[in-house]
Design a protein around this nucleic acid. Structure first.
Length: 422
RNA sequence: GGAAGGGUGGCUGAGAGGUCGAAAGCGCCCGACUCGAAAUCGGGUAGGCGGGCCAAAACCCGCCUCGUGGGUUCAAAUCCCACCCCUUCCGCCA
C-alpha cells in the first residue's frame, strides 16, 4: 500500500502520479477521513491521559488505605466516553484502510505515461526470427502429433485450459525447470525455495492480489486458503513482519511452483493450447533490497531472465510497460516477450517488476540501516521463467519440416542426451 | 480429528490486577582499562501512531502495542470468552 503520510503531505503530487495509471482515481475521501482520524485521535488521547493519571492517583490512595470512590465515579464517565470515541476511531480507520489498499503503486518517472498497453517501449531485441522455410505448425498440432501434449484427456480430468505433458513432453518441461533452477541458483546467485502452493488471505493482500483481483484466484473455501497465482505471493510474505539487517540485503530467492489462475474473462481468440492456461509451472525470482539499489537489481533481474532465453537460443525482445498496464503493486515493469512463429507474434514470458516499498509496507518488511534507522525494504519480482510459452516457443521455433523438433543443446543433458523429439 | 502445554523485546526467559513497556541473562552499540585485542567494569539498547513546529533531522510531550479480536474493571501482559499459531502425545493417512 501507499504511504499515507506522503499522501497527506503532497496530495497533488501523489494524485498526479496516480492518474498516470488511472485518470479516474481520487484522494478526496481518503484525505477527509485522514483529517477526521487525527482529530479523533487528539480527543481520545487527551481523555486517556486523564484516565491514566487518575488511575495512578487511585492506586496511590488505595495504597495509603484511603477512600477513592469519588475519583472512581468520575472515571466511570471518562471510561464510557473513551469507549465511544474508540469505536468511532476504529470505524474511521477501517474506512482509511479500505480506501488506501485499492490505490495502486506510483509509477516510476521512467515509465511511459499511457493508458494504452500498445504504448510499451522497445528496449532491446536479441536473436532473430527463425527462418523455417516452410509453413510453421502450431504447438498444439505438433504436441498432439508427437504425443507429448494431451489437452483432451486433461480436460477429462480438470476441464478446458489445463495442460498435460506426457512422455518426452513431460521430460522436456522438467528439463526446462531444471535448467532454470540451475542457472538461477548456480550462475545468478539466488537461493532456491519450494514454497507452499496455498496461501491465506493476508498473504494475498500483501502481494497485491486482493482485494481487487480476487476473481482471478482459485479459492478453497472450507479452509479460507487460495491457490497461489504465482510464487511471488509466497515469496513476498517470506519475511513478513520482520526487521532485517542492512548487511543481509539484497536477499535473492528463486522459487519453483505450480501457478493457478482462473483467467476469468480472458478467453482470447486464438489463445489455444499452452498460450493461456489455468495451471502452469514457473520459476519465480524475488529480491528484497534497499531503496538505493532496487533499480540496479531490477536491471540485473531482467538480465538473469534474458540469459535463460539466450541459452535456449530463443528470439525475444524486452519491453518497458506503460503506466496503465503495470500490476497494482508495481512501480515499473519490464516484460520479456518471446517470438512464437505460428502465432506470428511476441508473447510475454517474463514480467519483472520493482514494487519499491509498496508490498513491504503492506507486509511490514523493514530493515535496519548501518546507522540504526528503520526503513521499508524494496521488493522485486520477476519470472525466470514461466514454462508454457517457452514450450510453445521451443516446439514452434525448432520444428523441422518432417514434424520433429530439435531439442536445444542446453536441455539435452537433462533429457539423457535426446537430440530431437520425433 | 482427540488430549495437554504454550505464544512476552534481536534471542533465552521472569512477571499471575495498580509502583510493568516489562526482571535477569545473552547479543549488539558507546565509553573506561590496553600498544591493540580478549577478559573486566560503567552506560545505552523494542516498535507504531499523534502532537509540539510542519521542510526534513534531532529533541520534547502524549497515546497504543506482551499471538489476534472482543469482554470485565476507575485500572489488564496478568481475569473471562472466541479465534489463530506453535510444541508434545494419541488416532488416522501419504
Amino acid at each position: 500500500m501507499l504511504d499515507l503520510k506522503l499522501i497527506r503531505e503532497d496530495p497533488e503530487g501523489v494524485l498526479e502520479r496516480l492518474r498516470r495509471r488511472d485518470p479516474t482515481l481520487s484522494l478526496d475521501e481518503l484525505l477527509a477521513q485522514d483529517k477526521r482520524r487525527r482529530e479523533l485521535l487528539v480527543q481520545v488521547e487527551r481523555l486517556k491521559q486523564q484516565r491514566n493519571r487518575a488511575s495512578d492517583e487511585i492506586a496511590e490512595l488505595k495504597r495509603q488505605g484511603r477512600d477513592a470512590s469519588a475519583e472512581i465515579a468520575q472515571m466511570q464517565e471518562v471510561a464510557r466516553r473513551v469507549r465511544e470515541l474508540d469505536q468511532e476511531l476504529k470505524a474511521c480507520e477501517a474506512d482509511i484502510e479500505r480506501l488506501l489498499v485499492v490505490l495502486p503503486n506510483l509509477p516510476h518517472p521512467s515509465v511511459p505515461v499511457s493508458q494504452r498497453k500498445e504504448d510499451k517501449v522497445l528496449l532491446r531485441e536479441w536473436g532473430r526470427k527463425p527462418e523455417l522455410g516452410f509453413k510453421p505448425r502450431n504447438h498444439v498440432e505438433l504436441g498432439r502429433a508427437l504425443g507429448i501434449l494431451d489437452f483432451e484427456r486433461a480436460a477429462r480430468i480438470a476441464g478446458a485450459q489445463f495442460p498435460m505433458h506426457v512422455g518426452l513432453g513431460a521430460r522436456l518441461e522438467w528439463a526446462l525447470l531444471s535448467l532454470m533452477i540451475d542457472m538461477n541458483v548456480r550462475e545468478h546467485g539466488y537461493t532456491l525455495v519450494l514454497p507452499p502452493y496455498l496461501a491465506n488471505p493476508t498473504s494475498l493482500f500483501v502481494a497485491g492480489n486482493l482485494p481487487k483481483f480476487g476473481d482471478q484466484l482459485y479459492r478453497c473455501e472450507s479452509d479460507d486458503l487460495y491457490l497461489i497465482p504465482t510464487a511471488e505471493v509466497s515469496l513476498a510474505n517470506l519475511h513478513r513482519g520482520e526487521i532485517l539487517s542492512e548487511s543481509d540485503l539484497p536477499l535473492r530467492y528463486a522459487a519453483y511452483s505450480a501457478c493457478f489462475r482462473r483467467e476469468a474473462g480472458t478467453y482470447g481468440a486464438g489463445e489455444r493450447g499452452l498460450i493461456r492456461v489455468h495451471q502452469f509451472n514457473k520459476v519465480e525470482l524475488f529480491k528484497f533490497t534497499t531503496a538505493e539499489t532496487s533499480y540496479d537489481e531490477l536491471d540485473s533481474m531482467v538480465q538473469d531472465a534474458e540469459r535463460i532465453l539466450q541459452r535456449l537460443g530463443l528470439h525475444y525482445r524486452v519491453m518497458l510497460l506503460p503506466s496503465g498496464d503495470i500490476a497494482q503493486q508495481s512501480a515499473k515493469t519490464v516484460d520479456i516477450e518471446v517470438w512464437l512463429p505460428a502465432q506470428e507474434a511476441y508473447y510475454e514470458v517474463s514480467s519483472c517488476s520493482n514494487c519499491e516499498d509498496y508490498q513491504a509496507r503492506g507486509g511490514n518488511v523493514r530493515y535496519r540501516t548501518e546507522e540504526g534507522r528503520i526503513r521499508f525494504v524494496h521488493t522485486l519480482n520477476g519470472s525466470g521463467l514461466a514454462t508454457p510459452r517457452l514450450m510453445v516457443a521451443i516446439l514452434e521455433s525448432f520444428q523441422q519440416e518432417d514434424g520433429s523438433v530439435v531439442v536445444p543443446p542446453a536441455l539435452r543433458p537433462y533429457l539423457g542426451g535426446v537430440e530431437a523429439i520425433r
